[in-house]
Structure formats: C-alpha cells, structure tokens
Design a protein around this nucleic acid. Sequence first.
DNA 1: CCTTGTCAAGTAGCTTTCTACATAGGGTAG
DNA 2: CTACCCTATGTAGAAAGCTACTTGACAAGG
Lengths: 105, 105
Amino acid sequence: MASEAKLSHTAAMILQAIHAGFVYGFSIMEMTGLPSGTVYPAMRRLERDELIRSHWENQAIADADQRPPRKYYKITAAGRTTLEASRKRYPLLERLIPTEEAKSV
Amino acid sequence: MASEAKLSHTAAMILQAIHAGFVYGFSIMEMTGLPSGTVYPAMRRLERDELIRSHWENQAIADADQRPPRKYYKITAAGRTTLEASRKRYPLLERLIPTEEAKSV
DNA sequence: CCTTGTCAAGTAGCTTTCTACATAGGGTAG
DNA sequence: CTACCCTATGTAGAAAGCTACTTGACAAGG
C-alpha cells in the first residue's frame, strides 16, 4: 500500500468523520446511521492500514462521566493524503460531513 | 417484504439518485463515483424488490445520439416509501443528492 | 484496416458491509 | 432483585459491494 490505498465509499465516509472530529466509534455510528458491525471492523482496517491511530480513554474519565471507556481515533498523515484522494473520487463526500476548515469558510 | 425493506447505505444512495433524476446506470456511476460492479447489481436488486422499474430506451433515439441505448429507471410508490424511511435512518442522505423539491427551496 | 477511445451495460470472484446478537457497567422502574 | 434501557465496543455468518474484466456499437486517427 505504498501510496494511495483506495477506499470504499463507507470507509471514506468514516475517515472523513474522524477527520471532522467524530473521534470514537459510537459517535460515528450516530452521525452516519451506519451499524456497529460496519463501523468497528472498518475502523480496525483503517488502523491496520495506518490511516488512523487509536488509544483508550483513561478509565477515571469514563468513571467520572458514568459510561464505558471510549476508544479514541485520530487521522494520520497517510490518512489525510488518502482522504484527499477520496474526496476527488467521491465528490459528494465533502458535502457530507463538514470539517472545521470548511465550516469557517 | 410487506412494508419497509431495509436498505443499505449504498442502495439508499442509488435510490435517492434515481429519485433525484439520475435515471440510468452510467449517470449514477458518474455522479456517485461508485463503480459499475456496484451500481448495476444494486439496481437489479432494487428492481427485483419493486422499488424501481426499468425500460429500455428506443433504439432510434440512441442511434440519433450516436451512443448505446440506455436502460431508464424510475422510482415506484413502494420505492418512495422506502426512501422516506431511509432518509430517517441515514440523516446524511438528504444532503447528498438534492431532489427537485429541495432544489426549488 | 486496425488500434484506440467513448458510452453503456454487465459478470466472476474476492472483500467489505450488514443483520443480529453478545458483553459489560451503570441507571431506573416495579 | 429482576427486568429493562443507555453507552460503548465487539463478533459470526449472510448479503452486498468492489476490482478487474468483458461485450458491443460507433467514432477518430494513423
């Protein structure tokens, strides 16, 4: 996967969502309407391909908020490059989930 | 499939595209960026489930335009009902492909 | 002529997505 | 204290999607 790993529409949407600040699985499920059985395996593949990276939330924070700990994701440099390419392939994607930059314009 | 056949995200996107006036396979490929191997089988399933209906373009029209004949699709009443339900499930869908009604607002 | 290009639809076989269910802690309602 | 809902992640097996290729007709270029 030297340069650009081609993404499916769903994978691109998930990557775009992470880029836009929906940084854990459940939030992506809610905002996209995609089921857990799509989102979690897809994120594992994105991480396997090093387009995103993850770390578990501190248990103390989860306890304080009275909910299960979240697995937070962030996009890597390679992920940003691939997302850029996917935006060209799926022109509708940009419209879907506005990024911070897009919002401020 | 008495009432609401549940649609995948991709199937919903294709149905929405047809509803929005992209009425043959190739135009849907171009506007969504989805490959032919996704679009044509998906449309066959939509037709099998009677959410859309198809008819071949008159050969004379294709000849006059110097291109292969198109297979035109249109959404059925059941299709509109299912699409309505899918819009609730996939909140991003409405933003993807604006319908005639949405455009005029 | 013959190769290359474009539009349009289609298929085989591998990969991804979806449905349905599981796990687990906490809250709340009876 | 049992039953059920909410957040959050996860899995197995069936269904659907994706890559690469094919068909076919017509146009353009050499």
